[in-house]
Design a protein around this nucleic acid. Structure first.
Lengths: 146, 146
DNA sequence: TTCAATAACTGTAACGATTACAAATATAAT
DNA sequence: ATTATATTTGTAATCGTTACAGTTATTGAA
């Protein structure tokens, strides 16, 4: 393990402790993966990636860990087309765009002020998910050419 | 069957034909259910409701029908918390609010202009899903009192 | 340090929503 | 009527996720 990796691990551990989550090996690796890969992965993708460095890791453990991180507010779930869940460790406000052709997910800046007028005055809003759907620039181009 | 129902059926059939969908019994009933119940039902809820008047209806048939209506642009899918799909036959722009406590889904007016700035200039946007999540007025009140 | 209590993890089985598929039925076109 | 095509059914398979029981690791107190 390289120096930088150790430092990153320590940072991740701090972050976990700061959220009152005990920094077990699995938790550190899962959160680290999410911080290093802003790719909105599925649980399976995380599992497939981590199994290489953590032989013996179980899928169930990744599910558990994601649940813990989610409850701790470190990770937010995205429910995408087809009912598959994806996870994002960047919790500042932003929207997503998913390409119907290549499946890629893009982060999109979000200015949500006033989008619902005052219709939610009496509601207690805890989360807002904004998902655009269509063709990404590359797929839009290829689509026009065919 | 009452007069009004027949008229409604005829209207539904027109709508289907207008979208190049052959108005089979199942299709008419499913679209009719969605028009009469603005409750964002799951496939199973539609099935449970229709089986009373259409004995012998199969769940698979409801799935097929929803797929046909969706491809025809008459119905839009909502992927909610927990990966369950719900369907909405009202396709004009609006957002949704789901209550984390009672599960109810509310329609919310939506003013989406400019929410992504010009970040999607090169994208071809075909759909926008906006989902708020939190406590509805009643549940927020009950929550405060406990 | 040792021990007991608790937390975390594994692996298998169960589950629920959805899809695949083959057979049956209904509808449309010749 | 007859054939082709669409639609529907019912069962089995699939996929993502959760439940659960047993195991291993960690913590805190004696």
């Amino acid at each position: 393990m390289s120096e930088t990796k150790n430092i990153a691990n320590r940072e991740i551990m701090e972050e976990l402790r700061g959220a009152d989550v005990r920094p077990s090996t699995t938790r550190v690796h899962v959160l680290k993966y999410l911080r290093e890969h802003r790719n909105h992965p599925t649980v399976d993708r995380i599992y497939q990636n981590l199994i290489e460095t953590l032989p013996g890791l179980s899928r169930t453990s990744v599910y558990n860990t994601i649940g813990v991180l989610e409850r701790a507010g470190l990770v937010r779930p995205l429910s995408m087309e087809g009912g598959e869940m994806r996870y994002d460790a960047f919790t500042e406000d932003h929207a997503h765009f998913q390409c119907e052709r290549c499946g890629a997910i893009f982060d999109v800046p979000l200015n949500a002020s006033g989008i619902a007028g005052d219709a939610l005055r009496e509601f207690r809003v805890k989360r807002l998910d904004v998902l655009f759907w269509g063709l990404c620039p590359l797929c839009a181009k290829e689509h026009r050419e065919s």
